[in-house]
Nucleic acid binder design. Sequence first.
RNA 1: GCCCGGGUGGUGGAAUGGCAGACACAAGGGACUUAAAAUCCCUUGACCGCAAGGUCGUGCGGGUUCGAGUCCCGCCCCGGGCACCA
Length: 968
Amino acid sequence: MAVYPFHTLEKKWQQYWADRQTFRTPDEPVPGKPKYYILDMFPYPSGAGLHVGHPEGYTATDILARYKRMRGFNVLHPMGWDAFGLPAEQYALETGTHPRVTTERNIARFRQQLQSLGFSYDWTREVATTDPKYFRWTQWIFLKLYNSFYDPDLNRALPMALLEDALSDQPRRREDWAGSAYLDGTHAGYLQTPPEQRMAARAGLLRHMRLAYQAEVAVNWCPALGTVLANEEVIDGKSERGGHPVIRRPMRQWMLKITAYAERLLVDLDTLDWPDSIKEMQRNWIGKSEGAEVDFPVSLKPSAFSPQPLSIRVFTTRPDTLFGATYMVLSPEHALVDQITTPEQRAAIKAYQEAAARKSDLERTELQKTKTGCFTGAYALNPVNGEKIPIWIADYVLATYGTGAIMAVPAHDERDFEFARTFNLPIVEVIVPGGSAAVPAALAGVPSASKAAGGTSAATRGTRVLPFTGDGVNVNSANAEISINGLPTPEAKQKITAWLAGKGIGQAKVNYKLRDWLFSRQRYWGEPFPVIFVDGQPQPLPADALPLELPEVATYTLSGTGESPLATIPAWLNTTDPATGRPAVRESNTMPQWAGSCWYYLRFIDAHNDRALVDPAKEKYWMPVDLYVGGAEHAVLHLLYARFWHKVLYDAGVVSTQEPFQRLVNQGMILGEVEYTAFYDESGAPVSAEFAGDDHRDTRTMAKLVAERIEEEFVEKQGDFFVLRENSAIRVTARAFKMSKSRGNVINPDDVVRDYGADTLRLYEMFMGPLEQVKPWSMKGVEGVHRFLNRVWRLFVDDRADALLPELVAVAPTRDQLRWLHRTIQDVTADLDTLRFNTAISTMMEFVNECQRWTQRPRAVLETFVLLLSPFAPHLAEELWQRLGHAGTLAYEPWPACDAACLVQDTMEIPVQVNGKLRGKVTVPTGAAQAEIVAAAQAEAAIAPHLAGKTIRKQIFVPGRLLNLVVG
RNA sequence: GCCCGGGUGGUGGAAUGGCAGACACAAGGGACUUAAAAUCCCUUGACCGCAAGGUCGUGCGGGUUCGAGUCCCGCCCCGGGCACCA
């Protein structure tokens, strides 16, 4: 068999690298040597083992790590485990196996699989989030969060001690908070508070200003998983993991105040070299909108049920439409609902509130087509025109955004329009499309107010269709004091906002969609919170009490009350306050999986430090991460949380950079092999795919169809479609699907390594196409790159003799050979610098195809080629390098340099176009002048006829590239 | 609905506004072999033609340009994300 001995050779070099710690990065920074920190996204070591999607990104980073080492960089390329996670605990529930046991077994398998692929990780820096030595520092960061507050004036986090100081009669650290208008103001406010109220006010502020705080909030409770989930972990009302239903339920939770960082998380995106799509997703998630808050006085008939004047504050991005506000809507949970509801409406409102509370997120989304709501019986006054407008409640207004209340402008908002139509509420148009020039004419025909016509899809005013939600020009928008009529939208917004502010009934306001991060999980298998409760008040553990470890338990059964299993272990739960010796209770929730992955990139820098999370000098040397590669599924979860923690650590002086990941690249998903599917009806007769609906029914008859996978040989392409070979009227579908167990199209990397070797797998993963792109797997393609590696082997080695070939000689290379080599160096280098691994491999294939033809192969040329290949197929390259007579690894050999002098040729071939059409080519001396080339073209047999009898009107000459003759 | 990507041979893909289809797979033909495997060589976008050669061709329709897969405008289709956020 003429296959190179990849098995023995790959094992041999993996052993060699491990024995000599070839890829160990020096513990201390290397002064003067440029650093390169290249990081893979932290894998969760699942029981299923490695998937072919994993090695895609890992191979890319490994190739680059090896390349950068050869270019003289001090490279940090680590690997570790995001090891807390629900599956191990679910498994514990079923089998009683400790999650730690399962996790360690899975880690061992993952590690072994990764090592079998020859990745050049520095394994001495391996970390796992489940290791107490690691989560000690996760807990330490939590304490930082707990002991910090956000100063909106300085726009950074500060120690709680400063806020405590400001909230005291005689501050002692005033110089520490100099420059903070916020703390000055807080202190002044404190002094104005009557002394008997100060303690309570102080405690209240301290409680809610912390970056880690507790709140009783409506959470996404997933009964099946027995835990709450973050908003980001709920997809379409179901859990992201497992697809279980999720309901709303109020619970005491730890929250992290990520909202304080919303603006910085938003603006600092501009400094990052990340894919635009990811940045855009984060921008959308943060969801900044600028507008105004406006107070609407509640108009109550003088009566007993409201002794004080009330007002309702709303947030709007369109204060310019204020004159068109014809009703208000509060969210069903709004605090004022009870106070304003009239006795007649009380029962109806109560019923509506209860119905809304019961709805799950899923139901809320499903029911969004029809607007529901209930009138409170109360009215408010539109502050700009004094109109009395009804106040409703409706679940299309969210309690958690803005103020939980809106002013409804049905003429200029889709939702308000729909609601107004449903409940027959007035619609007043105050914006007309177009520039200011169009205003006078438009003004004339606009009625001041009109009732909505129920039933039609949109109301029409003249030629205009409502709702009109774009920018335009104001009409109908004036009172005795102010007019914004005729103003274009941006100016109208500005003018009315200034007027509102002057009257003290409104102000400019910025809002974010981003909500605080719900940080508690009711599970066993996670980091315990370093918090105890004394008399019900939370108290952080001192840093020297860390790590707080998980207790051993007899059973992993959920408590059933929504509490963590930890709550059922009195021996662990009940403790004493180390400060006072008084009885205390531990926090029984644990942290979510994202906690450990928020900062792991810092730990890799100084993995075994037991005095600090990371040594500052090392952090300064290695940060930021130069290249971060992983899947796009982490766009708003991990990547936003990690940026948030990093900024907190920056404010605390623990890290020196504002952002952790300078450059981010997303690898595209790898799909299964392309599948052809034909459809058959019940009688077994084939049905063309164009008639097969999504639900596998015939779209014409609605008869049920059977989908059947068929082999490629029975299919051919006809026009734009694939059809059955035996019956071309029957179309079949051709598609690659996501790999899944149920579909049975999962490729196991172990099988590929066994049959073709690790170098083949690495090469194929990169050869499939651009890294970022989604692409289907093809076993035939694997064989293709495997053949290439065999050809490389035979370039050097005589199969039968197992020795170097006689063709491989120490002769001086010809100019032609040198040109091939240096062109290859040039292209491979450029491709590596731009992460175009697929074309780098193509270039090397071309080189090998050419090299095979050489009867004499200059040793120096081939040695250089081995170095070019080595980042891609390191085992094969090391073996060839050794056989060529070198001692030791090639991992730190200098990367070959391209000599431009070797690239020049004596002659060049120039394509010649006539009137933009390619008509032929001429071969001329390199550097030939335009006139020479034109002369050569006129003499060329293929070109001359197209010029005959015509005059050349124009010559377009791109030196070295092309000549275009325009004739007529 | 909104926001991102993307549509190039039978397939994966390649092409700083300058030779469309590199490289690889598949298919067909040939060499070697008693035979097979492996390997090597040739052909391979479509159409017309014996050939030389010609015409067409990068989802569709326009435009800019000497020249467009690439830039601009308007559509269609596929994939991903978000979605009552006022």
